[in-house]
Structure formats: structure tokens, C-alpha cells
Design a protein around this nucleic acid. Structure first.
Lengths: 341, 341
DNA sequence: CATTTTATTGAAAGCGATTTCTAAAAAACG
DNA sequence: CGTTTTTTAGAAATCGCTTTCAATAAAATG
């Protein structure tokens, strides 16, 4: 394996000079630099990143920690897959490597310190974490490593986050349903205490309130963001609701898929008997028998910005804000019917 | 940061002794070892993997190279997602880290050397490569790094591979259709020269031959394993076939989804008007309006074995065979109809 | 009990880079 | 042209660990 020593010898300079030349440092004569560079390219020299890492104490690796209810399920959500893809692509572009760690939610808090201690990476990007905002931010601070939470917009100060405006997601979806004449609107959401879930719920409440529609808690179901809970959520909703809803907003598309199944199972046609709107805009929704109307989230943009933000933090480059919030938008397809008179 | 030096000092021994004790090497007195271990745990010592890596020239990182027609599309295939998940999980279990590189097929050959040269990882696992067997195996050998190809069963000797028996996939699907009375069977496959695609096609041919059914090349369409090509494949098939097929075998489920859409679009009901069988058994197929009959591949098992094989290669542990081939099995659901009289 | 063998320890040399810091050479100055 | 200042080059230290090898201590042997 060719080392900087070989380069130095061939160029007829000292190792330190070779290093300075290679790294474009000030204080080396252009002629000397040229010699070194030529020697390096002639020998096909690639600096050993481990040796470099030892002295600079950096790896140029960034850990993505993908967590969910069970490690099996996590990758089931196309939103996560897409954000992993875009983070990876951006990281690679900038000369970083992406480490992937898939953990289940209940081991998440044990794994984060382990991953940090293993020092295999310079920073952490958390994807799909379901820990409560406060707990999570405490842990992250204790870790003393640059870290960032993605997709969910964590409220605690001094935790970096890149997310969609989740409240706006809920607001847009609900407002659209209301505009289409619905006022009896079911909501299938997720765990409370996790900001993303709460925000989407609050958006729903806000739209209701603006329209002067009373809250009906029998219409609010807590799922877990996975497909099955969309299915069971609909069953609960139908049996529990004081008035049968004419529309359902599921806080993500995966649950909307489950909801569609359940509705079909119950003999309810979408959108004739009941309207349905999701959130996220995962791929292929347009291919469904009933194309799903949804709220589109700029997931790719989130992934890209997350990668750039964490790199910025590491390199001290141009600063992005610590909280980045992107706007969602309504994507009208065929699963919502107007019932205005 | 606490180093081995601190541990040695606290234990009152030399650094080398500390190292030997910590690494459970032969030749250190049990009492001494105990002292060192206690000091280490007291100081909460975690060895710096970079320093370790420098001397052992290893990183305990393994690169997964996920490639496909365009980097956007790759992660679209649940089979890839699942194999990435299981590889990652197994690697993590064994104390390795998984590096993810997502590349497009046409940059694949440039990226592999770059990734190897960057020395960020100790080995390569190739996922979704579409390079021709020969080219690929040549490149891999030149890289001089342990590497393994997953899912597709590459034929060239001395390239490690873990895959499903792709010929059997094609054979089982086609044989089943034949048993159900079909003899006019369309095939939507993929690129020739890539072993996986060819194998599935050959299985199809084999079943046909055994049943004494003549080959009809107008029934064989080349797709690209993505959903869209299932859609266009059906259109081609219907316009091209000398006799309209009564059943279609798409070489993977993703194309089956596209095919379903196209058939619906053409006003053909599945399975009443035409039967459809896929391959892979990706998640949620049972939730489709017409539950897709398919060939189930043990993707999780493939991922796990791939990780174990590459670790075995690195550590020289118990040896798995260089080519691991797993058996698929038929999963009957509702998209194939019997037309026997 | 002297001598050989074996077990245990520690000093020192790497691994391959970066980074200080000193020395030499070149340039600028009076 | 001698002196001061600025450039440039190189020797050596360092990052945190493993590993070799020599030295010492303990045990075994005749």
C-alpha cells in the first residue's frame, strides 16, 4: 500500500512537506507542491483515512439511527426509506459516508450511547424516533456529539431538527375536508407526547376551531403510524364515534392504506360513503384503486437539508438554522368527495 | 477522553500489559488482568476504534452498495429494502457497522473502486447490481477486497454470492400456472446477461418444456424489474402475442403491480380474464384488491447469510459455502384462476 | 542449590497521517 | 554588504492503540 512516505521519497521532500503540499497548506513553494502532487498521482496515492482520522479525530462517517416500534417495521414506511436515501446521497456527494443503524424503539436509548461511544461516526441523525421530546433532547445533549432529528419537529431548544410543518399538515388536510362540506371528521393519529403526532393533531383541531366545529374526542383515535393501526383505527372509529364520520384524516399515508382496507372490509365505499385523506404522499398512491388524496411532504428536501445541516455543523461552514421547517402541500386525488349542498 | 494510557496508569501496569489484559491475550496473570479490567470499567474506558483500526488496518465497517437504474429508483424495491435491513441488523449484532452507498447502475463501476480506495470499510456487499456477470467478477477481483453479491446468483467462480434459486422461481411459477390449466403464458422479465433475470427466464422455459409446450418468443417481454415496466410490459405483450395469453408470470412482484394496473386499464379482470403470478413476495401483497399469488423468496435469510458470510471471510471463522442458494416457495393467493376442464 | 525452562511484564517500535517548531534559505532592508 | 525579516523545508512529536522483543521473576529440573 502506498503511503505518504513513498510520495515524499519519490518527490524528494520530507513527509511533512508532502503532507502540507497534499493538503494545500500555506507555506509550500509552488514548485515543491507540483513535485509532490505529481509523485502522488504517479503512485496513485490515496491517503489512509484511518491514519488521518486518528490525528484529526474524525471519521467522515455519519450515523443514521432509524428506529421504530420494531426493527422489522421501520423500513416499512416509505417516508423513512426516502429520507435515508436522500441523506445518504447528499452525504456521499460531500465526501461523507453514511452509517445505517436500525434499532427498535425500546432499545433506542441504549443504542444511541453505544453508537456514540463506538466512535465510528462523527455525528448522529435520528430518524423515526418516538421518544418524548424532553427525554430525547436530554440524552442527545449528554452525548456531546452533533446530532439532528429528522421529520419530526422536536420542540426542545438546542436540538437540531429538520421537518415538515406538521401542524400545517393536519391543518391543510382538515381544512380541505371542511371546504368539501365535511364537519364530522375522524382523526387517526399516533402517540401523544411525540411532537410530530401532536402537531398533526393540533393542526386538525385548529382547522376545526376556525370553522366553528366542536371538538368530538370520540372521533380521535391513537394509532402508531403503521398500516395495521389504520385498519384497527377505522374499526375503533366506526364503533366509537357518536356520529358516524363522513370523512377520515389519517395522520400518515401508511395508516390511510390500512384504513382503506378496513373501510372496504366494512362495506363502505371511498369516497362515495366516506372520504379519506392521508399525509406524506408516499410513492404509488396514484396507482391505488382509489387514488389517495393526501398532503405532500418534501421528504427528499428534508433529507438533503438534514445532511447539509449536520455537515455544516461539523465543518463550521455556512449556517443553516437549527430548526428547519418545510411546508407541505395538498395533493388532491380521488379519495375525497364534496358533500356540499 | 480516557485512553488505554489512563487505564494502565490507574492499574499500575504498562500500556502493553493493559492492552493484553483488555484483549484477553495469553500471558497475563489473572490478578493483573483483573486489576486492569477494574481500572477500565472504573474509568469507563472504550477503546478508540480508529487507533485500533490504524494498527490492525481494519474498520469493522462493511459497505453495502445498492445500485439500480437510477439512484432514485433503487429503494423503490422492497426486496432491496428488506435485504438492507437484515444485513444491517446482522452486522450490528456482530459488532460491525453498515455503510450504505446508493449509486445508479451507470456509475456503479466508477464508485466501487472509489469506495474501496477510501478504505472506509473492510468489505463490500453488492445489492442490485445489473452489471454483466463477467465484467462484475473481474472488477471485484481487481479490487482485492472481500466482496459478495446478494440476491442475484452470479455464475462466475470465485465471486461470493447469496441468492435465491432464481431458476426455481421461474420454474415453480410457471409449473403452477401449467397445473392450473394454462399453456399460453406470458413472461415479463428483465435484462439478459444478468444471471438473475436469465435464470428466472430459464426456469420458465424449463417448466414449459417439461409440459411439452412450445416456446413462443412473442410471449417473452424484457422489462427492467421496476413497476413501470410491468405496466408497459403488459401493453407490449397484449399487442404482440400471437395468441392472447391466459396467464402472465412477471419475474418480480413490482412488475406484477404494474401489470395489474395495466390489465385493469385494458379492462381485463384478474383472475377472471387473465391470471397473474409474481415473484419475491414483497410485503402487503395480501392487501391488494386482488391478492397476488407469488413465489416467496427468503430475503431476510439471504441478508442474514450474506452478512455472516462476509464476516466469516473477514475473521476466518466457520466457513459458509462461497455460493449460497436458497429455495423459494409458491404462495398461493387469489390472482391465478384454474382453467382446467 | 545452581541451572534451565516457563510465565509475566514493560520499553519501544510501529501503523500513516498531521502538526508543531526549529533551522536553513531567500528576500528585503538600510 | 551585513542585518533583519519572511519563506520554505524538515525533524520530531503526536494521535491511541497493538505487537514485538528483551528483561525479569517464578517455577521446574537434575
Amino acid at each position: 500500500m502506498v503511503t505518504i512516505k513513498d510520495v515524499a521519497k519519490l518527490a524528494g521532500v520530507a513527509i511533512s512537506t508532502a503532507s502540507n503540499a497534499l493538503n494545500n497548506k500555506y507555506g509550500v513553494n509552488p514548485k515543491t507542491r507540483k513535485k509532490v502532487l505529481e509523485a502522488a498521482s504517479q503512485l496513485n496515492f490515496v491517503p489512509n483515512p484511518i491514519a488521518k482520522g486518528l490525528v484529526t479525530s474524525s471519521t467522515r462517517n455519519i450515523s443514521m439511527i432509524l428506529s421504530g416500534p420494531s426493527s422489522f417495521n421501520v423500513f416499512t414506511n416509505p417516508v423513512f426509506v426516502e429520507v435515508v436515501r436522500t441523506i445518504t446521497a447528499t452525504l456521499n456527494e460531500k465526501g461523507y459516508h453514511a452509517l445505517l443503524n436500525i434499532v427498535s424503539s425500546n432499545e433506542e436509548f441504549d443504542m444511541i450511547p453505544k453508537i456514540v461511544q463506538s466512535r465510528a461516526s462523527d455525528a448522529l441523525i435520528l430518524i423515526g424516533s418516538r421518544q418524548e421530546d424532553e427525554e430525547l433532547s436530554k440524552l442527545l445533549k449528554r452525548m456531546n456529539t452533533p446530532s439532528l432529528v429528522v421529520i419530526r419537529g422536536i420542540t426542545s431548544a438546542d436540538v437540531f431538527a429538520v421537518s415538515v410543518d406538521n401542524r400545517q399538515c393536519g391543518y391543510l388536510a382538515t381544512k380541505y375536508l371542511i371546504e368539501m362540506g365535511h364537519y364530522n371528521i375522524g382523526f387517526i393519529g399516533s402517540l401523544p407526547k411525540v411532537s410530530m403526532a401532536e402537531d398533526r393533531l393540533n393542526g386538525y383541531f385548529q382547522a376545526l376551531k376556525e370553522a366553528g366545529i366542536d371538538r368530538d374526542n370520540s372521533l380521535v383515535i391513537h394509532g402508531d403510524y403503521y398500516q395495521e393501526s389504520g385498519f384497527t383505527g377505522v374499526k375503533q372509529l366506526l364503533s366509537r364515534a357518536s356520529h358516524r364520520p363522513t370523512a377520515i384524516f389519517t395522520a400518515n399515508d401508511l395508516m390511510a392504506l390500512g384504513a382503506m382496507e378496513a373501510l372496504q372490509y366494512e362495506g363502505l365505499r371511498v369516497p362515495e360513503d366516506i372520504s379519506l385523506i392521508g399525509c406524506d404522499n408516499i410513492p404509488n398512491l396514484h396507482l391505488l384503486r382509489i387514488p389517495l388524496t393526501t398532503i405532500a411532504n418534501p421528504v427528499a428536501e428534508i433529507g438533503k437539508l438534514a445532511a447539509l445541516k449536520i455537515i455544516g455543523e461539523l465543518e463550521g461552514g455556512d449556517e443553516l438554522p437549527d430548526k428547519i421547517v418545510l411546508q407541505p402541500e395538498l395533493r388532491v386525488r380521488g379519495s375525497v368527495r364534496s358533500i356540499r349542498r
